[in-house]
């Protein structure tokens, strides 16, 4: 079961306008931020399917950047994610594709990110109502539900690529 709590249904508390295209994507970006352990210096984001068609109206681009900056789903600053990223001198690029080759769902994205020392690539799917899952890390299948308790410390040990 993906939805495990009454608060997966009544919640999250979030900035609008879409739980799957905004809040769920903030959560995926935030996971990336926490895995890297800092705000990335450069990111390349690929939106698939529904995300690539509606990202502007749903604020999906602001959501993923907001998450990568470490913001939570209910942080009103998500609205200003691009200005904040500019202050951090984050280098951002986007790509848009139709179908995700790695996971069969319309709400999928890939984030490839680099800090000074590390690089990591994650694939995330937003399953609805703000609940998301990581299905890919560095090209390997993963199955990490973001509405569960996560041990980021051991994940960093396992997944981070040292670039030095």
């Amino acid at each position: 079961m993906v939805f495990n709590s009454c608060f997966d249904i009544i919640g999250p508390v979030m900035v609008g306008p879409s739980s799957s295209h905004t809040a769920g994507v903030v959560a995926i970006g935030k996971f990336g931020h926490d895995l890297l352990g800092e705000i990335p210096k450069s990111v390349n984001i690929t939106f698939y399917d529904s995300f690539s068609e509606t990202y502007q109206g749903h604020g999906t681009d602001k959501a993923v950047i907001g998450g990568l900056l470490g913001l939570g789903t209910d942080n009103p600053e998500i609205k200003h994610a691009f200005e904040l990223a500019e202050k951090e001198r984050m280098n951002i690029s986007f790509e848009f594709e139709e179908r995700c080759p790695y996971y069969d769902h319309p709400n999928t994205l890939l984030i490839s990110m680099k800090s000074r020392e590390n690089s990591v690539e994650i694939g995330g799917v937003s399953l609805g109502g703000g609940v998301s899952k990581i299905f890919l890390i560095n090209g390997q299948p993963a199955n990490i539900l973001l509405n569960s308790k996560l041990d980021m410390e051991s994940m960093r040990e396992r997944y981070l690529h040292d670039r030095r």
Binding site: G11, M14, G16, S18, S19, S20, P76, K79
Partner: peptide, 21 residues
């Protein structure tokens, strides 16, 4: 309308349907 302005709402179960409950 608060949701459309990127204001803070509670998803019930989603943000797009957050007005009904």
């Amino acid at each position: 309308e608060t949701n459309a302005r990127m204001g803070v709402i509670v998803a019930t179960p989603t943000a797009g349907s957050a007005g009904i409950l």
